[in-house]
Design a protein around this nucleic acid. Structure first.
Lengths: 333, 333
DNA sequence: TTCAGGAGTGTTACCGTTCCCAATCCCGGC
DNA sequence: GCCGGGATTGGGAACGGTAACACTCCTGAA
């Protein structure tokens, strides 16, 4: 900067003013400084700037299982929005959901003086930990548990999505809808269970038992084998598309046709679920958009923390080929 | 820091020495300082440290399509390894593969004074751009094009993987192997084509034409429909698992059984490809490990730039249920 | 006994910005 | 012609660390 000032024949302070677009700089001076910066290929030292302003222009993201499609897409959406807002994003992941690793991740980001934090926070443990985070540091949680007042959240209305799916199946004429649930300790999985159960109860349908396990295809496959053995099962709502994939395989191997014998609905609308066998009817959620929204909320919160707002996004049902009315014979049974 | 020094009754310099684990500090003094730091909940200001040492303890990652399973997993592996090495990672993605956006991403990271950069660089454009990056900044490219001397790379031997897959099918007794290729401008796709073609040529088998398109299931579905119409097709090697998913659907809809009528092999071994219909035989690559290796290589390069090493990882074939010997009748044709 | 040399500590300068305040210039109004 | 006040600019002093060097002990060898 010193060199720029010398070359332009002004003080370092004036150079700083040009950089920060201070209004009180004569047009001519500004031009001279800009030219000098150009010719010296000058770039400001962010560390020095951070030191004095206490703003790093960096945002932190803490996340869990960021290799899954959902979190990865949110990350993408966040980074996209952050870039246009002039921020760089740093990531800190943790391996398990004890409070300590979460707080350590927050701490790592704080050390690096991030201006705010977005937590891809599928579980209560994370938001709980976040509430213990020091005041003065803006935090937003995205995609998971709601109901934490202290931290603004952006999330999908999982219950509404589950209602959509369940109602779709009931409307097709199914007596009831079975559910392969996600892991019990994930709020998203719980909310989907709730939406499903409420819809069945409201319709006066029987509520079959569930066995919460995990999010992956294996769970779907194992539980799908039991469901396939039960001729009363004509409709299955799966907690996500991967589970649905496993269920489809189990049904197929048991010789039960989809959708003729059994209808299947997923959740998430992963990129290729339209190419499952058969193409999967599922509940679509736009993860990247969720990420963008969370960033907007964070910036808002950083500007004026008076708004502990919560954003709720409603998902949509995408009907493809895995659902149909139950077979006439069976419907009568 | 001043406060800590005062509380411990030493100079700020001694506090600094304790922080940096300088050997020449008396045990007793160190204890006193540590205690003071503890009681004041002191944490060093990384910006100030960066300002003077010119080391930010931050690593940059530039990436493209980070929402895909492969890149997301590499990111995960990198972050994991970076954390244990005491680095934070910042990400900068770009939307298209022109040199400019790539260089802009690099520039953003430079502004933030990253100590090194890992490029999740599937295409030549990226590594080319990287070579234009300023000297003095260590770069490593992972998972994509090789053959760039200037930049150390970590990548999977795609040709070897393709040979594995093709040879597996030939060994089962198939006359030749058809291929649904990935996009032509991705080196990984090209290498897989090469490995496939070389194996066929070496075996004296006919080399069917290919139509490079994209990585997604739709491509597999569309091209799979053509392949399904051709009774001479008994074995298909797909450039990745998603394409394979589309091919499986097309074959199924055309009434051709897998593996009885047609064998299918994928590439990547995505989490759920073991639950496709039928479970997919595929070439496994460990993306997270790739990420970890690239980080190790970067640290090495940062320590002493005399080693422009390249690391090549050999993938493995995972045989599941989508491949079998061709039907007897057809084999004789 | 003297002195070289290393351990332990403090003093000062500096990293590259921004902030605060003062200084100068220029303009219009009286 | 004098003066108040905004526009424009410059001169330090931070910000919170680390590096370089100097200084004081203390030890052991000559």
């Amino acid at each position: 900067m010193r060199d720029v000032a010398k070359l332009a024949g002004v003080s370092h302070q004036t150079v700083s003013r040009v950089l920060n677009e201070h209004p009180n700089v004569r047009q001519e001076t500004r031009a001279r400084v800009l030219e000098a910066m150009e010719s010296l290929d000058y770039r400001r030292n962010l560390a020095a700037r951070t030191l004095v302003t206490r703003q790093s222009h960096t945002l932190g993201i803490i996340g869990f299982e960021t290799t899954l499609f959902g979190p990865a897409s949110m990350l993408y959406g966040i980074e996209d929005a952050a870039r246009t807002a002039g921020y760089l994003v740093s990531i800190a992941t943790f391996r398990n959901l004890e409070p300590r690793p979460v707080l350590e991740a927050v701490d790592r980001l704080r050390q690096h003086a991030v201006d705010g934090i977005i937590a891809i926070a599928p579980k209560h443990a994370v938001t709980d930990a976040l509430e213990q985070a020091p005041a003065g540091l803006s935090c937003v949680a995205v995609g998971g548990a709601g109901g934490t007042d202290g931290v603004p959240t952006v999330r999908v209305d999982n219950a509404a999505g589950a209602r959509l799916a369940t109602r779709h199946l009931l409307d097709l004429g199914h007596r009831t809808v079975h559910h392969v649930a996600g892991p019990a300790d994930w709020p998203e999985a719980q909310e989907r269970v709730t939406g499903w159960r409420d819809t069945l109860v409201a319709a006066g349908a029987e509520v079959p038992p569930i066995i919460p396990e995990s999010w992956n295809a294996e769970t779907g496959y194992v539980q799908g084998q039991s469901l396939a053995r039960d001729p009363a099962v004509t409709a299955v709502f799966c907690a996500n598309d991967r589970i649905a994939l496993g269920v489809l395989r189990a049904l197929h191997e048991a010789g039960r046709r989809v959708p003729e014998d059994v209808s299947v609905v997923g959740f998430d609308d992963m990129p290729d679920s339209g190419y499952f066998l058969p193409p999967l009817t599922t509940v679509h959620q736009d993860f990247a958009e969720l990420g963008r929204l969370s960033l907007a909320l964070l910036l808002e919160h950083m500007a004026g923390p008076e708004s502990p707002a919560h954003v709720l996004v409603t998902p949509e049902l995408v009907v493809r080929a895995s659902t149909a009315a139950p077979a006439a014979g069976r419907r009568r049974t």
